[in-house]
Design a protein around this nucleic acid. Structure first.
Lengths: 129, 129
DNA sequence: CTTGACCTTCCTGTAACTGGAAGCTTTATT
DNA sequence: AATAAAGCTTCCAGTTACAGGAAGGTCAAG
């Protein structure tokens, strides 16, 4: 199949597929005599795997490591574990930050009485030491 | 004062200060005969304002609008409001996404029995349709 | 035989910086 | 006074994960 079909099977744009090939996340596709890239079922699987990782917000660099490690059948899967746990930790840190943020923004949002700029409580808060 | 001093007063690096000037978030600094930038108290205030906005994760483009709007004393402060509320909304969307994410990652993290790569449940899940 | 869809590569832009090179000026030390 | 170190300048490249678009080749349909 050609690139656009792979794209529609996987929900990953053709542009992005080429990009993944560029950075070595996907192997170099076989080319026809016309220079077109041609793909197989296997590529659908690979791309879906990548897409699923992306949904977990795993950075491409880590996804690459996951892809590579899949080839090494008998190795222990500590690397996989680590990536997932680190990701989970990142998410938790982000959650904590967003909580603080939400509280601060809520306070700020509530303080405005829709006055004129020069009396705006929001701006006053933002300027405050 | 020179740029590094402004940096230390505000907690914004000299590099970043120059960058802010470049993109027009800060006004062009006055230069001495040597080409050095020189700053006043006012600039400390401006930068602290920006820093506070940054802590709320307001994008620089929006911070710029806040900076500009501060000059227009008698205008209604609807723009300010809007930016804050949009920001709050963004944060809430992000929180929601992170919640889903955390759940998914937790499930994944718990399914691994530290086996070999070829039997790794995490990878199996990631490959699953 | 031409139109339109699809393919290719390459370049640019995004957000908000950070790092580093090359080359001044100023300050401190010897 | 000479020199070294710190601080300043500009400019270029890199970061992340692509998207948009130009220029040009290819293929199927009418």
């Amino acid at each position: 199949m050609k690139i656009k079909q792979l794209a529609s099977f996987t929900g990953v744009s053709a542009k992005t597929i080429r990009y993944y090939e560029d950075i070595g996340l996907l192997p170099k596709a076989k080319r026809g005599g016309n220079g077109y890239r041609y793909y197989h079922e296997q590529d659908v699987t690979s791309l879906k795997f990548i897409r699923r990782c992306k949904e977990l917000r795993i950075p491409l660099a880590d996804i690459k490591r996951l892809v590579v490690v899949q080839g090494s059948g008998n190795a222990p899967c500590r690397q996989v574990d680590t990536i997932i746990f680190q990701q989970l930790e990142k998410i938790r840190v982000a959650q904590y930050e967003l909580e603080q943020l939400e509280r601060n923004l809520k306070t700020l949002a509530n303080c405005c009485d829709h006055e004129q700029i020069k009396d705006c409580e929001i701006l006053k808060h933002l300027r405050a030491n």
